[in-house]
């Protein structure tokens, strides 16, 4: 474990807790894409198949349970909670799941480290996580208004993967044969997808104006 990865995990943890807290306290999911949340639940499910087979550390297991629990709770709130679901904007959140899931699945079947079920699922989860934010970014572009918590959520989510890139660079130089180009490429693509959001987020923060994304 290194400081970059710990900071990345904590940032990721805070991002999902910020979202869960927002939905739980104000009983609203306005501006949140259910599609993205469902994709994240799928990312964690396919990423953590080894949850009960390989024990790495207490930290690893606890964090996996938190990410799984929080992502499914968020999906449950938006789908089932009698008050929250009313604020879900299904007419705007129209990104088709299979436009994202199918290409990632095909890519995982073509490009992976080992052709085993767990390894292909794990690779699929990496590709899926890289693009899972797209429905949320599309929704933000459409609804234009970004409330603070949603802005913070997307910012923290992007920051976590940027910190992971520093972690991979650090591990590449400190651990022999630590080579995982699939992880690195997926992580870089993921962070680049947030790049324009980051730009507008900093602009709004610097000029102290409300965050607006160009149409």
């Amino acid at each position: 474990m290194n400081i970059f990865r710990l900071a990345g995990d904590m940032t990721h943890l805070v991002s999902v807790l910020v979202l869960l807290l927002k939905i739980h306290t104000i009983k609203s999911c306005a501006g949140i894409s259910l599609k993205t949340q469902e994709l994240y639940a799928l990312v964690f499910t396919t990423r953590y198949l080894d949850l009960f087979t390989d024990y790495i550390s207490l930290y690893n297991t606890v964090m996996k349970l938190i990410f799984l629990g929080s992502s499914f709770s968020i999906v449950w709130y938006i789908r089932r909670h009698k008050i929250v679901r009313r604020s879900y904007d299904k007419d705007q959140d129209t990104f088709r799941h299979y436009f994202i899931v199918l290409p990632c699945l095909v890519l995982a079947l073509l490009i992976h480290h080992k052709f085993t079920f767990k390894e292909v699922m794990w690779t699929f989860s990496l590709y899926l996580e890289a693009v899972a934010i797209l429905p949320q970014l599309v929704l933000l572009q459409r609804t234009r208004n970004i409330d603070n918590l949603t802005g913070q959520y997307v910012f923290l989510l992007g920051a976590y993967r940027a910190l992971y890139i520093l972690n991979w660079i650090y591990r590449h130089y400190t651990e022999p044969h630590y080579v995982h180009w699939i992880t690195w490429i997926a992580g870089i693509v993921q962070t680049l997808l947030y790049a324009d959001f980051f730009y507008y987020y900093f602009q709004s923060w610097k000029n102290n104006v409300k965050l607006q994304l160009p149409a």
Partner: peptide, 10 residues
Amino acid sequence: QFHEDVKDEL
């Protein structure tokens, strides 16, 4: 064997 370590990441 070089795979195993990447699985220690979340």
